[in-house]
Design a protein around this nucleic acid. Sequence first.
DNA 1: TATAGTGTTATCGG
DNA 2: ACCGATAACACTAT
Length: 266
Amino acid sequence: MPELPEVETARAVVERHALGRKIVEVDDSDEYECRPHQPGQIREALLGRTLTAAHRRGKSMWVDTSDAGPVLGLHLGMSGKIVVTDGDGVEQDGGDYWRRGRAPGDLRFTRFVLEFADGGWLRLVDPRRLGRVRLDPDVEKLGPDAARIAPTEFRNLFRRSTAPLKARLLDQERIAGLGNLLVDEICWRAKVSPARPVDELTPAEVTRLRSATAAAVTSAIEQGGVHTGEIIAHRRAGGVCPRDGAPMVRGTVGGRTTWWCGREQV
DNA sequence: TATAGTGTTATCGG
DNA sequence: ACCGATAACACTAT
């Protein structure tokens, strides 16, 4: 679920609601979510500190801590969500992007908790447990953030490779933040097949892809998640392209289930 | 009950 | 060494 737009929203929630509150307890007992740290390791590193700034690159977010403390890395994986309670107990979760939504107060799948001195808390709620919590995460391997990538960098993504377009856009080391749904949305907006070898793309197609990337990312952040994309509701059996009415085609590209308009996206 | 899945990563083969 | 495809990971919803 979480792609760049959801992570940006989560980052903003942390920035607005969690900074400056003293950490008085930490539950890092989920050994899978907190791998490779041992239980208690993250707790010891954070007790007594405050969060001071929230950052993001691609789908990775991280939070600085006070008093020369470690950086707390948070990755939402496939199903993670950050939920913060304000001092008055009201939950802030940055919008509903789970398949069927997360009812307020549904904390069944909490995998990591920071408790603050005012009684509030920050939780990572993650049913599938593919997210992770890490001290001092390495984010240097990530490519440029998809929301801020420069035109030249974007063009260079497609040089000297016969990889399918979708595989290249999903490669987090080359451009960070795009996921399965966002890439389908971008290819559809640009009217390019996700299976096209990238070194065969024309300059006009690359330009359309660059514009579509910026527009799709911006729109998804504003509208509340990648599921608000124009093509997403049509990614299903029997779906038709909302532009020309042609049937949507399903296939596997870059190892992921992919849908595209069989008429426009060639 | 069987299957798919909005992410990442180790492994395998070319 | 690089690159791409694949499977595995953990678990729920359908």
